Simulated assay, not measured.
Amino acid sequence: MRSTAPHPLIRYRWTVLVLALLAFAFAAVILVLYKGVAGFPLAATVAPAAIAFVWLNGAFWWLELRYPHIEVAPGQFSSRHEQASQAGQAFTTTFFVGYGLAALLITLACLNVAASA
C-alpha cells in the first residue's frame, strides 16, 4: 500500500489500451488492403505496429494490475496485485514474466522481418 496519491497519468491507462488496439487495427487494415500489392513495404509497415501493440498492451496490464491506484482507505492506495491472494500474486508475477519474454521474442522477430524486407 502507498500513502501517496497515484500519479496523474494513471488516469490515462485506458488511453494506453486504446493506443494498443489502434496499432492492432492499423496492422490488420494494412494487411487486408495491401497484401499481395507489389512494391508496398508490408513487413516494414506492419512490424512496428505489432511491436507497438505488444508493448502498449503490456504497459496497460502492468498499470492495471501492478500499479497502486485503488483507494482502500482515505489516503491509502493499493494495486490489484496487492489485494490478490498468494496464488493470485504468483499468477500475476508469472504472467508478467511470461509476457515480458514473449514480448521480447516478438519484438526481435518483428525487427528481423522488417530488416529483411
Score class of each variant (00 low, 15 high):
residue 105 L to A: 15
residue 83 Q to P: 01
residue 111 L to S: 04
residue 71 E to F: 01
residue 85 S to W: 02
residue 20 A to K: 02
residue 63 L to M: 11
residue 10 I to S: 02
residue 5 A to V: 12
residue 102 A to G: 06
residue 2 R to P: 03
residue 55 W to H: 15
residue 51 I to S: 05
residue 79 S to D: 04
residue 110 C to E: 11
residue 55 W to M: 13
residue 41 P to D: 00
residue 79 S to M: 05
residue 53 F to W: 11
residue 88 G to F: 00
residue 7 H to D: 06
residue 73 A to E: 13
residue 61 W to N: 06
residue 45 T to G: 01
residue 20 A to H: 07
residue 32 V to T: 13
residue 2 R to V: 08
residue 59 A to M: 14
residue 106 I to V: 13
residue 96 F to I: 09
residue 42 L to K: 12
residue 15 T to S: 11
residue 10 I to L: 00
residue 51 I to N: 04
residue 62 W to M: 12
residue 106 I to Y: 00
residue 77 F to T: 10
residue 59 A to P: 08
residue 6 P to D: 04
residue 97 V to T: 12
residue 8 P to H: 06
residue 66 R to E: 02
residue 14 W to V: 01
residue 92 T to I: 08
residue 67 Y to R: 03
residue 46 V to N: 02
residue 76 Q to N: 08
residue 32 V to P: 08
residue 41 P to K: 00
residue 88 G to H: 04
residue 64 E to S: 01
residue 6 P to W: 09
residue 100 G to C: 11
residue 33 L to Q: 14
residue 22 L to D: 05
residue 39 G to A: 13
residue 9 L to W: 02
residue 58 G to P: 03
residue 5 A to M: 08
residue 89 Q to S: 05
residue 64 E to K: 01
residue 43 A to K: 01
residue 31 L to A: 13
residue 71 E to G: 06
residue 45 T to N: 04
residue 35 K to P: 10
residue 93 T to M: 14
residue 97 V to A: 06
residue 99 Y to G: 01
residue 38 A to R: 05
residue 83 Q to R: 06
residue 108 L to E: 07
residue 95 F to H: 04
residue 24 F to S: 13
residue 41 P to L: 03
residue 53 F to S: 07
residue 13 R to W: 02
residue 54 V to D: 04
residue 101 L to E: 07
residue 94 T to V: 04
residue 105 L to S: 10
residue 62 W to F: 10
residue 96 F to Y: 05
residue 25 A to N: 10
residue 65 L to P: 00
residue 22 L to A: 15
residue 67 Y to E: 06
residue 81 H to M: 07
residue 82 E to W: 04
residue 91 F to L: 11
residue 30 I to L: 10
residue 63 L to V: 03
residue 49 A to D: 03
residue 8 P to Q: 06
residue 61 W to Q: 06
residue 6 P to I: 13
residue 90 A to E: 05
residue 75 G to D: 08
residue 27 A to T: 13
residue 9 L to T: 00
residue 52 A to T: 08
residue 57 N to E: 11
residue 104 L to S: 11
residue 10 I to K: 00
residue 9 L to Q: 00
residue 111 L to N: 05
